[in-house]
Amino acid sequence: MTSSRPDNVFHVSTWQEFRTALGGGGNAARTNTEPRIIYVHGELNAFEAADGTMTTCATFEEETGFSQAAYIEAFDPYGPWGWKDPEGELVDLQAAAANAQALQTQQHIGSNKTIIGVGDDARIVGANLRIRDADNVIVRNLTVSDSTDCFPEWDPGDTASGNWNSRYDNISVWTSTHVWIDHNTLDSGDLPPDALASVYGRPYEVHDGLLDITHSSDLVTVSYNRFEPHDKTMLIGSSDGRTADRGTLRVTLHHNKWTDIGQRAPRVRYGQVDLYNNYYVQTGPYDWYSYYWGVGRESALYAENNYIQLDPANDASTIIAKWGGVAMTEIGTRVNGKKVSALDAYNAANPTDTIGDDAGWTPQYRLKVDPTMSVPAQVELRAGAGTLR
């Protein structure tokens, strides 16, 4: 690691150099508020240990005496264990193994940090970048890939068929303000949804979100990013029960591209979200698609001039899903080139559970809203890592 100004400008090319530039691992970086600019060169792999050796999921199992294979065998709902929540020593050991992984691959980003990828090949692989309790953070021009959780947890009560759930997003924004996520590419690496194994008849999901904004974060802008094939892409708002989120979660999303994603683009609770000039693309039929815009509890989603390319297998009524919300504003949507109201389509398909057409606010702070038909070309040209202009 080199620094042209040792007090605040760093050029890094390894995971350990990156962590050091941010103030260290664990809470040391989380509480570090010194202004720092960090330039990332090439690929940083979060599984690379401080001594340069590569850890693996097996490393964390060996450190703790845990076996994910034993966990899977023990809690098979179709075996003697049945449809009960996992419990006992294996659950405790799994928590220890998960903590060992977090110490290696999870990196906090504190206040007053700017992280910029250099050129078109800067990437961080295998990490959960967590912007937590921070103010004034910028992340630009990076590919952030594959935040694999080595130890997914089985939840038999999550849907009628159960689900495997993971701990890590590629980027998490928690209790943070004034955050700008710009010109990045976020993906699932070698494990997009169609590459996942099936365990207990359910996808063995090793990822959570690509970019989640939760826990009363506020004043966040997400611009000119690419979200590559993934299931749960972006959650805004922690849970229905977190009423502390009221009055926060003011988020702007513009000129992002979402390709072959399953859901949450975004799903909103409580937040006042400005969603304009985004481009959604389905390159063909795929079985993990559910919806794009989730209207959750006390949400205020304002969607304007977004372009959606749906596969013929999907109807415009699927664009919106209702998760306890009562209203949103939608203006200027185009679906496959045609003017279409996704909200009208949803309400026509769900006449006993409709959504109102007024989010209760109007965005004030935009430089420009582009015509919907110009969105695909603009986003293709300018969105993602390596396209800074």
Rank of each mutant, 00 (worst) to 15 (best):
L191Y: 08
V199T: 13
P192S: 12
S217N: 12
V199Q: 12
H183C: 14
Y200K: 13
D182R: 11
T185C: 07
L211V: 04
P192V: 03
L196T: 03
T214R: 05
N184T: 07
L191R: 07
V222Q: 04
V220H: 01
E205P: 02
H215K: 14
D218K: 09
Y200Q: 14
H183S: 14
I181D: 01
D218E: 10
H207G: 04
Y204L: 07
T214H: 08
P193Y: 01
L186R: 03
L219I: 13
D187T: 05
D187K: 07
D187W: 02
I181F: 00
L219N: 15
R202P: 13
T214W: 04
G209Y: 01
S198Y: 06
A195E: 12
L196C: 06
D194N: 13
N184W: 07
P203F: 00
H215D: 10
S188D: 13
V206T: 14
G189D: 03
A197D: 14
D208R: 15
G209K: 00
V199W: 10
T214I: 15
S217I: 00
S198G: 12
E205D: 15
S188G: 11
Y200W: 09
S188Y: 07
P203N: 04
N184Y: 10
D208Q: 13
L219E: 15
T214D: 06
S198K: 15
S198W: 08
D190G: 06
H215T: 14
V199H: 06
L191E: 09
Y200T: 15
T185A: 01
L211Q: 05
G209T: 05
D187M: 06
D208P: 08
L186M: 06
T185W: 02
A195I: 03
A197S: 13
P193L: 05
Y204K: 13
D182P: 10
D212Y: 09
S188L: 09
H215C: 01
T214A: 01
L191S: 03
H183I: 12
Y204M: 09
D208L: 10
S217R: 03
T185D: 00
H207E: 05
H183E: 07
L196E: 00
L191C: 00
A197V: 13
G201W: 08
V199F: 06
P193R: 09
P203Y: 09
H207N: 01
L196H: 02
L211F: 08
T185Q: 02
S188I: 07
G201C: 08
H183A: 13
D208N: 15
L210Q: 14
H215A: 07
V222G: 03
L186H: 07
D182N: 11
G189P: 03
R202A: 11
G189V: 02
S188P: 05
D194Q: 12
R202V: 10
S217D: 10
T221Q: 11
H183K: 12
E205V: 11
S216D: 13
Y204T: 10
H183Q: 14
T185K: 04
H215E: 00
N184M: 02
R202Y: 11
G189N: 07
T214V: 15
L191N: 07
D208E: 14
E205Y: 12
D208K: 14
P193G: 09
G209V: 05
T185M: 03
V206D: 01
L211A: 04
S188R: 15
D194T: 13
V220W: 05
D208Y: 11
T214F: 02
S198T: 15
S217L: 03
A197L: 12
D218H: 15
D194C: 06
D187C: 01
L210G: 04
G189A: 02
H215W: 08
S216A: 09
A195L: 05
